[in-house]
Each structure stands twice: as C-alpha cells, then as structure tokens.
Nucleic acid binder design. Structure first.
Length: 567
RNA sequence: CGGAGUGUAGCUCAGCUUGGUAGAGCACUGCCUUCGGGAGGCAGGGGCCGCCGGUUCAAAUCCGGCCACUCCGACCA
C-alpha cells in the first residue's frame, strides 16, 4: 500500500475537543474522523485495525465451535415488548418508526433477535448446545457519550449467545469463553485483568468482565495481590474491618450545635472518624430505609440495590422529605429511635463506643454500642472497598487499578427463553426452557483501549496482531536520488511478494514529515532507506520502541519474515 | 437533565470588551531555493464569522431564541 495513494489524513496539531489520548492519537494519526457526538468514521488505517481485531476474535472463537452469522441492526418492537425491555430499557434504546408507523429500535444488543431465531429453528436437545456470534453495529443512546471511541453511541461489538439444556453444559461453554477471551487479549499483547462483576439487569447469573488496564479507564478494579480474587469495585467485597470491642463508655446524649457533617462531629467531639457512623436515607418500597456506614466509609450503590426493601434504582431522600418524615435534618440522624427500618454495614457493625445523631436537632449520642443501646439485626455489606482493605478471601490487602471494560461474559439463565417462550424437547419429550450465556467484546472500544495502553509521546505503538500494517517502509529520496528510489521500490515489491503487509511512504516529503507520520501511525516494523545507509548497503530497521539497527539490504526481507513466522 | 465552556478558512486559533472593507500559522496551487526529525522566499486560491430573529445608517462584534460540540456531574450489559 503506497502512502501517496492512501487516505491517511494525519494532523500536526492536537484537535480541539479531544481529551483522552486514544481519541487524540486516532484522530491525529488519520485512523478516525468524528461525525457527531459518539459517531465516528473509520478511515482506511482504522478499519484495518478493526478487521485485525475481528479476525483474532473470530479465530479464537471458532476453535470452540462458535458459529458466525449476522443479525439485523434495526429490530421490530414486538420482540422487545415480549422480553419487557421495550419498557425497561429507557432512553438508551433509540426507538423509531417506519412509514407504516410501526415501532422499531436500533439494536443495542441482540438477545431478543437471537432468542427469536432460536425458538423458530431449534426444537430438540439434539441440537444443543449451540453458540452463535456476530460482529455488528450497536447503538446505545448514551446520555453523555465521552472519551472519544471509548464511549461512543454507535460502535461495533462482537456478541455471542449460547443455548444449553442445563447449567452444567452452560458452565462448560462459559469456561471455554473465558479461555477464548483470555487467549484473545493475550494475542492483543495488552495488560489485562479479569474481574467479578455485577450482572446488572441483564441476568441473575455470574458474570466476569475483561478489562484492559489503563489509568484513564472508567472502571475501578479491586484485586488481591496474593490470590486470584479480583472484582469490579461495584461488587468488590472486603472482610469486615476490626472486631467489636466490649463497651467501655456509657451512652450519653450531648448537645452538638451546628454539627452537620461527620467531619464537624469528629472535630467537635475530638473523636476518630472510625468511631462515628453515618445514616443515609434512601427511598424504599414501603417507607424510607436507612443505611448505616462507618463515618469514613462510602456507600456502594450496587450493594444497596440488592436490599429488597430498597426501591430501584436507589435514590437518596431529599432533605425536605427527611425532615418531614423523621423530624430532624440530615445532620442529626442515627439508629436510636429511628422510625424506619435500617441496615448496618458489616464494618459499621464492628465499632464500639461510637457516636451518631440523636434524631433530634443539635444532639448526638456518644459512647453508643450495638446490642446494648441499639439493636443490630440487619447486617449487610454496603460499603465501597478501598485500597489496602482485607480481601474477602482472606488472602491479604486489596489493591486498586483502573480499567477499560472490553469484554464481558454472562450466565444469562432462562430470562429470555422464558419471556419469549423458547422451548425445546428433552430426551424424555418434556418441553424445557434452555439456559443461555452471552459473551461480548467491544471491537471499536478495544482499538481505543489498546491505544490508551500502547502509546508514546510521539504516537501510537501498535501491538503486532492489531497493527494496521506489518511494515512501514520509508524512502528518503528528497534529492531525487534515483538509486535510493529504485532500491526502495524494489524492496517494497520484495516485501509484498513475500506476503508482508507494507505501508510504503513514497511521498515527496521531507524526512522529518515522514518520520513524524511514522511515529504517529505506529506500525511495529519500520524500515528506512536513505542515501546515508544505502552507501553501506544497509537499511535502518526499528521494531516498535527498540533501538534502530542497521541491517544489510539483502537480509532485511528474511529478517522480517522470520519475525512474522515465529509468532 | 444540572453546572461550565466553545462555535470565525481543511486544521489550530486571533479579532468581539469599545459596532465601520474578515485575519495569522499550518495545509492547498504555481515558481525558486532547501533536503536525515513537521524548512524558507515570492505569488495565489479558499469564509453565509453555527442558525434564526432583533437593535442600528451599519453587526463576527450588542440583545433574544435555537442548534451543535467538549468538559464535570447524574445515568449506563
């Protein structure tokens, strides 16, 4: 591929309105252009990257008997009504009508369509298990798209769906998909971590997220340095902190004028923050519900949502509602004589001789103790874990990292087969609802996530399997040096004939321009042919960020070939 | 949706406060010089100043409305 004949619009300056490094570099290196908020065009080099990513995914899935197909992007509302998601999905689902005023949506995912396909065509246990996947465009009308390609509205994803007669069969496939995803990310040569995740609204079963590690990642991951325990912070668990000591001080109600926050309280009473608890009020099914955490701990909303008595989604009660219902302001709440049910975080349940609001304006209790002064019945895990907390498996302290979620595997269960009446006959002739798994990898997001992890000051540094091309061949013949030009031309054809993908910079540009573009684009093998080295019958060769080597002209093709064959 | 900001040449931006012929650098076209890390000179082409309305003799500039994009937050398989 000749540079002069390829559409590679590199930018010298940093584009306005791009903040994250992947967005900036993909724009500057001429891989993408932005059309609108969360909408991107993939230019020739960018598309090559997407195709490489797809091919690796495809190869690894086919090993496990997954079958590729392609399902529609525009989908009739009937299916979504059957699964209830027409109502439950909210604005993220972009709805539209055709000329007959029939309702459709742009697909954010394909559970409905694949289940519909399944129920019409699969009748017998003999046909299971089966695992179908496709690469397709998805649309999610995000409230706020951001971070360029990392969180766009329209994007490409590989999604796969498996159907099984029983959980045991699903377990096997789930493990295979785990292995396949690990192999895929290993081939992409990125630093990644697999974490336990909250399955959210999609199903009730287990799920694991695959994250590319990057400081700019939107997700926070907690993991144990000494075991395999790793979880998204949303569902990460720590052991309860501390051990409850025997009460030493009597319960006392003390005046605390103008104390409104936990910080005020610790200052006013000169108490360590670990000996305070805070009372958060959320809306519940029947009445308000109180959640009690240690003063220095943060509520984890995903955990709070698991309490059945709490309304979904979890919403905090306003100050007005709280004073109307509980008779005091948010700064004076506490569990004693509280009129509403309350839940105590596991770590908050471990404190002794502690302080909290007296449910009376300007008063707090001190020296309080669980059981002696106030019952402590509903103890649950409510808090967000932090760096250094003891991992729930007892293996030692948790560490924290940021990650970009590029893959997610779920055990779906029978949610869709039941709601959409997809059944097959088992060996005995009974109708059963097959159990499902679903497995996604964001293709476009993967491209951006890799750039987040693999870049330098100058530009992108593509891992070999994802790079748009294998070799970047730069010819320096600004003086119209015909010997150099002839040599590079011959080298270009020799490389192409050897089956190597080459981007040949044949432009009549100054060396600086060509080097700068090569640095930006980030193709892993770079060969520079110029008068200087050619006089010694060598070319300059560099692999990714390594030092430049001088390689004899007649050895360079073989050197590259050997490298490519080794992998 | 709340908060903040930005829309002027293909790109990055100045001009707006204080209304009066639309600018720079890069990119592009031609010529000359230069030629191993985004060269220099000369001459050019390129604009509905986001859109609509208002004020005014006169609006990129002042006023109102709308739209788009970006960031923070809430939201989110």
């Amino acid at each position: 591929m000749k540079f002069s004949e390829t559409f590679i619009p590199t930018l010298r300056e940093e584009p306005a309105h791009a903040e994250v490094i992947s967005h900036i570099l993909l724009l500057r290196a001429g891989f993408i252009r932005q059309l609108g908020s969360g909408l991107f065009t993939w230019l020739p080099l960018g598309l090559r990257v997407l195709k490489k990513i797809e091919q690796v995914i495809r190869e690894e899935l086919i090993r496990y008997g997954c079958q590729e197909m392609l399902m529609p992007f525009v989908q009739p509302s009937e299916l979504w009504k059957q699964s209830q998601r027409w109502e439950t999905m909210g604005m993220e689902l972009l709805r539209l009508q055709d000329r007959h005023e029939n309702d459709y949506c742009l697909s954010p995912t394909h559970e409905e369509v694949v289940t519909d396909l399944f129920r019409d065509n699969f009748m017998s246990y003999r046909q299971l298990p089966c695992n179908l996947f496709h690469f397709s465009t998805k649309f999610r009308d995000e409230i706020r798209p951001r971070f360029g390609v990392l969180r766009s509205r329209e994007f490409i994803m590989k999604d796969g769906y498996s159907f099984h007669m029983d959980d045991k069969s699903l377990d096997v496939t789930y493990q295979e998909m785990y292995d396949a995803y690990s192999a895929i990310l290993t081939r992409f040569d990125v630093n990644f971590r697999v974490v336990e995740a909250d399955p959210g609204v999609i199903g009730d079963g287990e799920s694991l997220e695959f994250h590319v590690i990057a400081g700019s990642g939107e997700d926070t991951l907690a993991y144990s340095k000494h075991s395999n325990y790793a979880a998204n912070i949303e569902s990460a668990e720590a052991l309860p902190l501390g051990k409850r000591a025997t009460p030493k001080t009597p319960l006392q109600k003390v005046p605390t004028p103008n104390v409104r926050t936990i910080e005020d309280l610790t200052k006013f009473l000169n108490l360590p923050i670990e000996r305070t608890v805070k009372t958060l009020i959320v809306h519940g099914q029947e009445s308000l519900v109180a959640l009690i955490l240690r003063g220095d701990h943060e509520l984890n909303l995903v955990k709070a949502a698991k309490i059945k008595e709490v309304s979904q989604p979890v919403t905090f009660a306003s100050e007005e509602v709280i004073s109307a219902e509980l008779g005091c302001s948010v700064g004076s709440l506490g569990p004693i004589q509280l009129k509403i049910p309350f839940y105590v975080d596991r770590s908050a349940a471990m404190v002794s001789d502690f302080s909290f609001g007296a449910n009376e304006e300007g008063k707090h209790f001190i020296g309080a103790n669980w059981d002696r002064d106030v019952e402590c019945e509903n103890v649950v895990d409510l808090r967000m874990v932090g760096e250094g907390d003891p991992a729930v498996d007892g293996s030692g302290p948790l560490a924290i990292q940021r990650g970009i979620e590029v893959g997610h595997i779920f055990k779906l269960g029978t949610k869709y087969t039941r709601s959409m009446e997809a059944t097959v006959l088992d060996r005995e002739g009974n109708s059963i609802y097959p159990t499902m798994g679903c497995y996604g990898i964001g293709v476009t997001r993967m491209a951006a996530a890799v750039v987040e992890q693999c870049h330098s000051e100058e530009g992108i540094d593509w891992p070999i399997e994802i790079a748009p091309m294998q070799v970047h061949l730069v010819g320096l013949f600004a003086k119209s040096n015909s010997k150099v030009k002839d040599t590079v031309d011959r080298l270009y054809h020799a490389l192409c004939d050897a089956g190597i993908e080459v981007l040949y910079d044949d432009r009549e540009e100054r060396p600086g321009v060509k080097f700068a573009d090569a640095d930006l684009i980030g193709i892993p093998h770079r060969i520079v042919v110029g008068e200087r080295s050619l006089n010694q019958n060598t070319v300059e060769y560099r692999f990714r960020q390594a030092e430049i080597e001088n390689i004899p002209l007649d050895e360079i093709v073989m050197k590259i070939l050997n490298f490519l064959n080794k992998k």
